[in-house]
């Protein structure tokens, strides 16, 4: 059963252009995604594709000039804004991208213990610290005394000791050592295996592939494909969307070949398929309207040519 479900989420920002003109920019349109129990869902895409935005919308921490529509369901029940806020920190643990989310005036050990709601918090915190190679002395330190990598591991610990049902991790790995990354990823796997769920937001497909069950590919504010992890293999023949295939081929361990062009700007999106301007399969029909999401071979795709 889907533990968390986002249905037709659209986000727009109202912002000032030059001078006094104000305009509405649609940054996310009709996005739907499901997070199943016991599953790790990786969300990959380039910067500006709306990955972090989705996390912020789910945690109800979007900036004030944002407008949203659509619904979020938790264990099958639709959530109001208030319920969503209440969920955060209890059922939903967030590992933010920025280490500035740590409280600068509290010892980090205490901060980590706070997110644990039952059981022996101190013991839990110590064992989690040990597993992330954080020494005993670290729990008495304040955030400004930590290196970037240590702060990041502290954030990981916060989620690890919590009794949340869902972890949303926004780029948790950059700047960390290979060993720690593996440790963190293994922890996510264990977490998910206890009938909980993890949403891992990353631009690093390599990391996502090692632990995720499904991968959702974002492009210009929408999901272009949701595929089981096994489809990412060989030359990418099993992948559905041309963008996903290009992404896969561009990896250094594969062909390392780019496709030309860049992701369109949100203020200047094409009328039809968002990927059409860069797509090798582009036809007249692609430029008429945005393709709908459709089921295809145990996954989903937003492309009229995909087979």
């Amino acid at each position: 059963m889907a533990i968390l479900e986002v249905k037709n989420l659209s986000i727009s920002f109202e912002q000032y252009r030059s001078g006094l003109k104000r305009e509405v920019i649609d940054v996310m349109s009709n996005l739907s995604i499901e997070l199943e129990e016991g599953e790790i869902l990786a969300i990959v895409g380039s910067s500006g594709s709306g990955k972090s935005l989705l996390a912020h919308a789910m945690l109800n921490i979007l900036p004030e000039n944002a407008k949203t529509s659509g619904q979020i369901f938790y264990e099958g029940k639709p959530l109001t804004d208030v319920e969503l806020t209440a969920l955060r920190g209890k059922e939903l643990a967030f590992i933010p991208q920025s280490v500035n989310f740590l409280d600068p005036l509290m010892q980090v050990g205490k901060q980590v213990r706070q997110s644990s709601r039952n059981g022996n918090a101190v013991e839990k915190q110590r064992s989690v610290f040990e597993c992330y190679h954080l020494g005993k002395e670290v729990e008495k330190l304040y955030p400004f005394q930590l290196s970037g990598g240590m702060a990041r591991r502290t954030l990981l610990s916060t989620a690890a000791v919590s009794d949340a049902k869902i972890i949303i991790a926004d780029e948790p790995t950059p700047g960390l050592d290979e060993v720690v990354i593996q440790e963190a990823l293994r922890n996510f796997r264990e977490f998910a295996d206890e009938n909980r769920a993890v949403m891992l937001i990353t631009h690093d497909i390599g990391a996502a592939l090692t632990i995720a069950d499904k991968i959702a590919v974002f492009y210009a504010g929408t999901v272009v494909e949701i595929a089981p992890v096994g489809d990412f293999s060989g030359k990418g023949e099993k992948l559905r969307h041309p963008y996903t295939k290009a992404l896969w081929r561009a990896l250094p361990q594969n062909e390392f070949t780019p496709i030309p062009g860049a992701q369109p700007h949100l203020s200047d999106l094409p009328k039809g398929c968002l990927f059409a301007p860069r797509c090798p399969l582009m036809t007249e029909a692609c430029t008429v309207e945005r393709p709908r999401v459709r089921e295809l071979r145990d996954g989903k795709v937003r492309c009229i040519h995909a087979t």
């Binding site: 109202e14 000032y16 001078g19 006094l20 104000r22 004030e64 000039n65 407008k67």
Partner: peptide
């Protein structure tokens, strides 16, 4: 959502 109530703040400041 607050936007609608506030109307255009830049314009207000300029005025």
């Amino acid at each position: 959502m607050k936007m609608n109530l506030l109307s255009n703040r830049r314009q207000k400041t300029l005025w």
